[in-house]
Design a protein around this nucleic acid. Structure first.
Length: 561
RNA sequence: UGACCAAUGGUGUAAUGGUAGCACUGCAGUUUUUGGUACUGCCUGUCUAGGUUCGAAUCCUGGUUGGUCAACCA
């Protein structure tokens, strides 16, 4: 695990608005000048790149101010939560490169939360409501007009105490009663209209089993959990802004440590969806291969796609933090992986769409070995020997019979360099009856082998190749964006985001590769020279390698075509 | 027809009353045995109307636009 990554980009001098708040607090000596954050996922789904923004923020801030970050599972709804998710969440956070100070669960605090509820009842600030869910909803009113007080609102403390204890004891059925905070049914903030604190749920919890049949609501659990852990700055997304008065109300009325809730705008990326519900739907309805499908914005999906932790951390840094709604260009994420992989990924040659190139004047039995550089960005990476022979595979797109003037590659009568080998000249092409090109015939200049003086001759292009008799085959999975429109959620009547799915987001092909790879561990990143970055997929076997395309190299030629 | 929040190039984010900067994208060029990388240059911006001030992206007021809130979800 990478635990000690120093700031990957140049040190940022300006502060985001949260850091500004924290520095102000530090200056004032608030919280004894300590910083303690938390990352509070609900274990009901896999983490995605939006969570990565939050993780990097919370852990990053704590690190910057010599503070701590807790991992706390917000597990107050047993119906939706599962241990499968807590394991994947921990794995993803570690993979991203972070280690938490302590691992907690909101369910650890059920007993304390219950005691505090009793305390609020005794203070006349909470009551048991026997109304049905429909009645409560109806009486809450709408944002533009006040709600109506429940007929049970003014029960005696004794009666409330008795009822609430019996709720806990399991005497009542699901949904028959709730505990509500007595605040203000006329508040313009809906969350202050006597919010539900506890509901009855005879359900087994992944940690507390059947100990409880009443479970606290988010609003009643979150702030107090923060408080118990001594959190100083409780950072969450914008939609919780309207919950803040409630967060504050519970802390104040319970007279407990009062962390400061700060909201920031969640991450959105175009051509993708970020809601857990929708990602779950994509998985359940099998529009993708699973949570870790390389087209998914989940952390396990990105990992399988070949994204590195450093590239995602850098992305989180670059996008910044603010309160304004934002949509980040997918190209920024791609930039971040390319930047990281350019430095780290070893190069190899692969031919995805092969066509035979025959060097007529090269001896048919001859095999030479040429030296290929493993990574031009890293001299330490060294070089490898590649077999060269008379018949080669080259990329179909590297030849054009009637080429425009801006096409630099192979065309009849023109020379190109075969990378690390010789300069060849196209002499003729073989075609079948239908006029399809079967093979390209070239002549080579023996004086132009890389390293020889003549090899410095100016040619317009250098192309990659593979010795046909030595090349191995591999499965390569090419990906395009999962959705074909920038905002998949923008749909006309009767349509859903699923109608915006890109039918061509996955293409599986057979490709030729070099005979050897230095590493074949899952997730190993390579650059296929002149094509893009690829990584080894978990579906690889001893006899067949499977590669996932991480991202294509920039291609100015493809653009001007 | 309520409350709260936000508004800076195509996108994101700085400027904390004093020269509107950075990154991505796009475009043009230099270098290059990857049409990659690196490097250089260019395009494009303070929602609007007032006010305060010597001076406003920044403070105030009105408007406009966008977002959030009416689960016994988080």
């Amino acid at each position: 695990m990478e635990t000690n990554h120093k700031s990957e980009k140049t040190e940022k001098t300006s502060l985001n608005f949260i850091e500004a708040i924290i520095e102000e607090d530090l200056k004032k000596g608030k919280n004894a000048s300590k910083v303690h954050t938390r990352f509070p996922p609900e274990p009901n789904g896999y983490l995605h790149i939006g969570h990565a923004k939050s993780i990097c923020l919370n852990f990053g801030i704590a690190k910057k101010y010599q503070g701590k970050t807790n991992l706390r599972f917000d597990d107050t709804n047993p119906i939706k939560e599962d241990v499968e998710y807590v394991e994947s969440i921990k794995e993803d956070i570690r993979w991203l490169g972070f280690d938490w100070h302590a691992e907690y669960y909101a369910s650890d605090y059920f007993e304390q939360l219950y005691a505090w509820a009793i305390q609020l009842i005794e203070a006349g600030k909470a009551y048991v409501d026997d109304s049905t869910q429909e009645e409560i909803s109806k009486n809450r009113g709408v944002p533009t007009s006040p709600g109506k007080e429940s007929p049970y609102r003014n029960r005696s403390v004794q009666e409330n105490l008795n009822l609430f204890r019996r709720m806990r004891a399991g005497e009542f059925s699901d949904g028959s009663r709730v505990l509500r905070a007595k605040i203000d049914m006329a508040s313009p903030n809906m969350h202050m209209r006597d919010p539900v604190m506890y509901r009855i749920l005879h359900a087994s919890h992944h940690r507390t089993g059947n100990d409880w049949c009443i479970y606290p609501m988010y609003d009643y659990a979150h702030g107090q959990s923060d408080s118990i852990e001594g959190i100083t700055h409780s950072i969450c997304t914008l939609e919780f802004e309207v919950h803040r008065p409630l967060y504050d109300w519970f802390c104040e009325n319970l007279q407990i440590h009062h962390p400061q809730q700060i909201e920031f705008a969640r991450l959105n990326i175009n051509y993708t969806v970020m809601s857990k519900r929708k990602l779950l739907q994509l998985v359940q309805e099998k529009h993708v291969m699973g949570w870790d499908d390389p087209r998914m914005p989940t952390l396990c999906g990105l990992r399988r796609r070949g994204y590195t932790p450093a590239s995602i951390r850098n992305f989180a840094e670059i996008i910044g933090v603010a309160k304004r709604e934002n949509v980040i260009d997918f190209s920024l994420l791609e930039y971040c992986v390319r930047e990281d992989l350019n430095k780290k990924a070893w190069r190899t040659m692969a031919v995805l769409d092969p066509i035979k190139l025959i060097i007529d004047n090269y001896p048919s039995e001859k095999i030479e070995y040429v030296q290929a550089i493993n990574n031009p960005e890293d001299p330490q990476a060294g070089s490898r020997a590649l077999p060269f022979s008379r018949e080669l595979w080259i990329e179909r797109s590297d030849f054009m019979e009637d080429a425009p003037k801006n096409f630099f590659r192979l065309t009849p009568g023109r020379e190109v360099r075969l990378k690390y080998a010789y300069i060849v000249k196209c002499e003729s092409v073989d075609k079948d009856d239908k006029g399809n090109i079967k093979a390209i015939h070239c002549s080579y200049d023996p004086e132009t082998r890389s390293g020889m003086p003549e090899s410095n001759r100016k040619v317009k292009a250098t192309i990659h190749w593979l010795s046909a008799q030595h090349a191995k085959t591999a499965e390569v999975r090419l990906f395009d964006r999962l959705f074909c429109v920038a905002d998949p959620d923008e749909v006309t009547e009767g349509k859903s985001f699923l109608d915006n799915l890109n039918p061509n987001s996955l293409q599986i092909i057979k490709a030729y590769t070099e005979p050897e790879f230095p590493k074949t561990e899952v997730f190993t990143n390579y650059q296929f020279e002149r094509i893009g970055y690829f990584c080894i997929d978990k579906d690889s076997t001893d006899s067949k390698l499977v590669f996932n395309q991480t991202v294509a190299l920039k291609d100015t030629w493809a653009k001007q075509k």
